[in-house]
Amino acid sequence: MRHQRRIGEPAFHCPRRKKPLAGLLEEREPAARERVEGLREAADRVLAELAEAETARTGR
């Protein structure tokens, strides 16, 4: 049986969760932003190494 939303209840609320989904997402957002920043830094390092290797290979 599906849970029917009560009047005034947020559409994203799940009755089995202790916190609304928006609250869980807000808690996880800072950690996700840190992971994304770390991945960007790693990608920048890889691109810099690739550019350096290309320069060494072509001699320019």
Score class of each variant (00 low, 15 high):
residue 24 L to I: 08
residue 49 E to Y: 07
residue 13 H to L: 14
residue 26 E to D: 14
residue 12 F to Q: 13
residue 1 M to N: 07
residue 23 G to H: 09
residue 47 L to V: 06
residue 58 T to I: 13
residue 3 H to L: 03
residue 53 A to C: 04
residue 19 K to L: 12
residue 23 G to I: 02
residue 32 A to V: 14
residue 22 A to W: 02
residue 11 A to E: 12
residue 31 A to F: 03
residue 43 A to Q: 05
residue 26 E to Q: 15
residue 41 E to I: 09
residue 25 L to V: 07
residue 57 R to E: 04
residue 28 R to N: 07
residue 41 E to G: 07
residue 6 R to F: 03
residue 27 E to W: 05
residue 9 E to H: 03
residue 57 R to N: 08
residue 51 A to P: 01
residue 10 P to K: 04
residue 53 A to W: 08
residue 45 R to F: 02
residue 56 A to Y: 05
residue 7 I to G: 01
residue 23 G to T: 13
residue 6 R to I: 00
residue 58 T to P: 03
residue 19 K to Q: 09
residue 53 A to E: 10
residue 2 R to D: 14
residue 38 G to I: 00
residue 37 E to R: 15
residue 37 E to S: 04
residue 27 E to S: 06
residue 53 A to G: 11
residue 37 E to C: 02
residue 23 G to L: 08
residue 60 R to M: 05
residue 55 T to W: 06
residue 36 V to L: 14
residue 8 G to T: 03
residue 27 E to K: 10
residue 37 E to D: 05
residue 28 R to S: 11
residue 34 E to V: 07
residue 42 A to I: 01
residue 3 H to D: 09
residue 23 G to M: 11
residue 38 G to T: 04
residue 22 A to N: 09
residue 59 G to T: 01
residue 7 I to Q: 12
residue 47 L to E: 09
residue 27 E to P: 01
residue 52 E to Y: 00
residue 22 A to D: 10
residue 33 R to M: 10
residue 41 E to D: 07
residue 28 R to F: 02
residue 47 L to M: 11
residue 45 R to C: 06
residue 15 P to V: 07
residue 60 R to D: 13
residue 17 R to T: 02
residue 6 R to G: 07
residue 36 V to T: 08
residue 9 E to I: 02
residue 52 E to A: 14
residue 8 G to E: 00
residue 9 E to N: 00
residue 31 A to R: 01
residue 46 V to M: 06
residue 19 K to H: 08
residue 7 I to F: 01
residue 40 R to W: 00
residue 2 R to T: 10
residue 45 R to G: 03
residue 51 A to S: 07
residue 3 H to N: 11
residue 60 R to E: 08
residue 7 I to C: 04
residue 60 R to V: 10
residue 8 G to L: 02
residue 32 A to C: 08
residue 44 D to W: 03
residue 43 A to M: 03
residue 40 R to N: 06
residue 55 T to Q: 15
residue 33 R to C: 05
residue 16 R to V: 11
residue 55 T to D: 14
residue 31 A to L: 09
residue 45 R to E: 12
